[in-house]
């Protein structure tokens, strides 16, 4: 579907490191991405078959001298090599995908709180049960209006309050608009949590969920896995998937066609459920799309379509109204 070769320069840099290691080339099916830590096959998305690897033989995909992908056992990497690969991944991750400006559209009329998005996201990013990169909230705008479900990822703002306050560049905005986390850099001051008005960020208060299994994995800044104790995590627009030309985890997991995702510079968004592509500007204009709390001036890159002509009536815990909720 795509051959989005990353910036030639970054690729060349990566090859240098590849040649340091000099692993024999192994033909790999998926071309087009320059280094990616293979995750254990537990992700189990609908319609996506991934080879399951047992923890003991976890493999890492690396790019070799001649631009081929190779798989090596994580345990065979020396610490020095591991560092080199990690920093190459980090460099590529910090750079982003040139020419892109990712945007998401969430159709509130279609959401019925299935939470497939939340599940697939937590799976992909190895999150604990209470950690949400995307959270489906129950909202009610005024007393007499109907409640509705509102999935809330990170909005990857164009005037991000979180990256403003980070003292060490551990959270930063890349050229394609994605606000990423570098948990190898993060000092855990949590200023970004305080700064984010959308409560989009979570913290690893304890050892992360898959701490032991993930030990050998290369740190992929575009996936923020392995998670690390004492650092921040948040929605990354599945930067690792975008690099492969795939839609984000949550977007493709949704069974109800809630999510559209695409490139603002192409003015096109693709529905994760039906695969249909429409013009972003048209979709937003025709459906009176809006962004959340625009008065804060954060300029979000996630748009909502109002919950009008709802496909599914609101129902939560057997109730059709919102009562006894903790007020936010």
């Amino acid at each position: 579907m795509s051959d989005n070769n990353s910036n030639p320069n970054s690729r060349r840099d990566f090859l240098k490191i590849g040649s340091l290691i000099g692993i024999g080339a192994v033909a790999a099916g998926a071309a087009g991405y320059a280094g990616f830590a293979a995750q254990d096959g537990k992700e189990g998305h609908a319609g996506e078959a991934e080879t399951a690897l047992s923890d003991s033989e976890k493999k890492i995909k690396v790019l070799t001298e001649d631009g081929q992908l190779a798989e090596i056992k994580a345990s065979e990497l020396s610490p020095v090599q591991k560092d080199e690969y990690t920093s190459a991944l980090q460099e590529q991750g910090r750079e982003g995908i040139p020419g892109k400006h990712w945007v998401m559209v969430i159709d509130l009329a279609r959401c019925r709180n299935v939470r497939a998005c939340m599940a697939s996201c937590q799976n992909a990013h190895h999150l604990r049960e209470e950690q949400h990169h995307i959270n489906v909230l129950r909202m009610q705008d005024a007393e007499h209006t109907e409640p509705y479900f509102m999935p809330k990822p990170c909005f990857h703002c164009d005037n991000p309050p979180c990256t403003k306050v980070c003292p060490v560049d551990a959270t930063f905005k890349r050229q394609d608009g994605i606000v990423l986390i570098d948990n190898e850099r993060c000092i855990g001051c949590r200023f970004c949590i305080a700064a984010c008005p959308y409560s989009a960020r979570v913290f690893n208060w304890f050892e992360p969920k898959n701490e032991e299994e993930d030990q050998d994995l290369l740190y992929n800044v575009e996936l923020n896995v392995p998670q690390k104790k004492g650092t921040i995590s948040k929605c990354l627009f599945s930067a690792d998937r975008l690099r492969e030309g795939k839609l984000p985890y949550c977007v493709s997991a949704c069974p109800n066609g809630v999510y559209y995702f695409g490139d603002l510079n192409e003015d096109a968004v693709t529905n994760g459920t039906s695969g249909e592509t429409t013009r972003f500007s048209e979709l937003i204009r025709k459906n009176a799309g809006y962004t959340l709390l625009p008065e804060l001036g954060t300029k979000p890159n996630v748009y909502y379509l109002p919950p009008k002509n709802r496909m599914f009536p609101f129902e939560f815990n057997g109730k059709t109204t919102l009562e006894d909720e903790h007020h936010g």
């Binding site: 209470e130 959308y198 936010g328």
Partner: peptide
């Protein structure tokens, strides 16, 4: 901090 702009839910 107990009163963010959006409700605290699913935690």
């Amino acid at each position: 901090l107990l009163h963010p702009h959006l409700p605290i839910q699913n935690v």
